[in-house]
Design a protein around this nucleic acid. Structure first.
Length: 201
DNA sequence: GCCAGGATCGTCT
DNA sequence: GACGATCCTGGCG
């Protein structure tokens, strides 16, 4: 039996859509907290909804850097969003982590988020960043160094079915099916519409 | 259960 | 000065 291994830079150095798809079932750890990634979205440089679409700025420069870094930014002045930079160095793209199934450090995450059951603890990008304790200070940090760890899927998540559908909370390019979620469909932010089944992770 | 509205602030025009 | 890759609450059935 082999313990799940950490994803290397090679995992992230390819199509951001493949990366976002294949992240489903992987384990994200941040310090002692984390869980299984069950929902992601991909944002590519030629995509009007991508922060890099309008060109390079101080905020989005991490997107243009090497793959395997964390891109963190503030949404609506309140919520922190955790992304994983993909594609080659210089090609701006990232996968937004939208939800995880909590498995590690649940008590600590619950303390950060207040009185919540497992279901609402990490079921949304803002929620999961708050639960993990991810902040702007982690923008540009390597996902393969502490406090981050990203592990390949454990046995019960290997080859799990993935569904794709339209992305959420954006106003442009809303028709593109670049939201991925686990077909088993627990702990995701929107249990609803996944429209199309795609190949297994 | 569904939907409307408010909170709150960094970033770019 | 406007606008979000969101979340929570409260009102209404």
């Amino acid at each position: 039996l082999s313990r799940p291994r950490a994803l290397g830079e090679g995992f992230f150095a390819r199509s951001v859509h493949e990366v976002a798809h294949d992240l489903i079932g992987c384990t994200l750890l941040f310090g002692g907290c984390g869980g299984v990634i069950v929902e992601t979205e991909s944002y590519d440089r030629d995509d009007p909804a991508c922060h890099a679409f309008g060109g390079r700025t101080p905020r989005n420069e991490v997107l243009f850097g090497p793959p395997g870094l964390a891109y963190v930014y503030i949404s609506y002045g309140i919520h922190r969003m955790l992304n994983m930079v993909a594609e080659s160095d210089g090609h701006a793209a990232a996968a937004l982590i939208r939800a995880i199934e909590p498995t590690a450090g649940v008590a600590e995450m619950r303390r950060r988020r207040g009185d919540h059951g497992l279901g609402g603890l990490c079921s949304g990008p803002g929620k999961l960043a708050q639960a993990l304790g991810v902040g702007l200070e982690h923008n540009g940090a390597s996902l393969s160094r502490a406090p981050f760890r990203v592990l390949e899927p454990a046995a019960d998540w290997r080859d799990t079915a993935v569904v794709a559908g339209p992305r959420i909370g954006i106003t442009r390019a809303t028709e593109l099916p670049w939201r991925f979620s686990a077909a088993r469909n627990r702990f995701v932010s929107r249990p609803r519409p996944p429209t199309a089944a795609v190949a297994a992770a």
